[in-house]
């Protein structure tokens, strides 16, 4: 009884009418929220006074800042905006921002999670003038190496595209920058999953891979193709082309181009005046002969062993590995193992 009496009382309460009194304010409902506020002044934030839209330069800068946005699509859209802005600028007009400003913002996107962002990044990079990249190749190669050994297969795959782009732009500079030859080769070999030393592994030991490989053989074929391009860039003999240039000098002048100041920026980089003391891996291998020697000493064997195995797979992979073998053969044909 007790509970029902209580319920009755509660129910009754719900239907009680509030008593209105003359000359008094209406009683407030129970769920009334006081929304009034007191303030000495009401401040409106500065509002834009310009009638025109923001200028192209400021928009460009704004989109650069949006590259670190949290949302994937925002980053991708900004990248595509930047790409169009760069691609559609009048011929011979300078970039809205110099490459040295752009690149540090772009590189972290190499390891971006989203596929769309990475592919868009590649488009943007292709739109940049190749000559400007050459000076920054030391930075580019760092990010490429980070991408090549990444755990995620897709990032690795898209980094391969980036490496191909870098080789197109400035292949020569890439293989001759600090750590560009040995370390990159090492990273590429590790990425293929080929053992670096002919370690006493059991012949039956399965090849372990990190992360997911990306089940299709396309990734492997692509990486092999890129490896071939990289080896070509490093080992290819360019003397013929330069030789043609040297022909043009008249009699008393001979081999002038050897004695001229290099056209490269930071042409004394190999002296390594300010950097940390280099080890074998981060050494600069500017000369083709040096590269050949290091290659023969450290990398030829694991690569050839790996290629043998890959070639037997046939198909795309087999063809790509044949290309790599050809690159090695061409590059190393005049190497006598002495110099």
């Amino acid at each position: 009884m007790g509970s029902s009496a209580k319920k009755k009382k509660d129910k009754k309460k719900d239907f009680q009418k509030p008593k209105l009194k003359v000359g008094k304010a209406r009683p407030k409902p129970a769920n009334f929220t006081d929304t009034s506020f007191k303030s000495k002044a009401i401040v409106l934030n500065q509002q834009s006074l310009t009638t025109a839209a923001p200028s192209a330069t400021s928009q460009f800068a704004h989109h650069i800042s949006l590259l670190t946005s949290r949302t994937d699509s925002q980053r991708r859209d900004s990248l595509s905006y930047l790409t169009t802005a760069i691609a559609t600028r009048p011929t011979n007009a300078p970039l809205p921002q110099p490459v040295s400003v752009l690149l540090p913002k772009l590189f972290p996107l190499t390891l971006d999670i989203s596929n769309g962002v990475r592919s868009q990044l590649l488009k943007l990079l292709r739109a940049l003038p190749p000559r400007d990249i050459e000076d920054h190749i030391g930075n580019v190669i760092l990010w490429i190496r980070a991408g090549v050994t990444n755990l995620a297969a897709e990032i690795r795959s898209s980094t391969m595209d980036m490496l191909a782009w870098a080789l197109d732009c400035a292949g020569d500079a890439l293989v001759s920058c600090a750590g560009g030859w040995v370390k990159t080769l090492k990273a590429l070999i590790i990425m293929q999953g080929w053992p670096m030393e002919s370690s006493p592994q059991a012949w039956s030991s399965t090849k372990t891979t990190f992360g997911k490989l990306g089940s299709d053989g396309k990734a492997l074929a692509k990486s092999l193709t890129t490896l071939a391009a990289f080896l070509e860039a490093g080992l290819h003999d360019r003397r013929q082309e330069q030789g043609m240039q040297s022909m043009s000098w008249g009699w008393p002048l001979n081999h002038v181009e050897q004695h001229m100041i290099s056209r490269r920026s930071n042409c004394f980089a190999y002296l390594n005046l300010f950097g940390p003391p280099p080890d074998e891996e981060s050494q600069i291998y500017e000369d083709r002969g040096d590269r050949q020697r290091v290659f023969a000493n450290r990398f030829r064997k694991p690569i050839e062993l790996g290629l043998e195995a890959a070639k037997q797979g046939g198909g795309d992979v087999g063809r790509a590995s044949a290309r790599v073998q050809k690159a090695i053969k061409d590059g190393m044909k005049d190497f006598d193992g002495l110099n």
Partner: peptide, 15 residues
Amino acid sequence: SYREDFLGQYEQYEA
């Protein structure tokens, strides 16, 4: 067995 994988990650760390 996982030495190669480790080396990959070590390279990544180095980079």
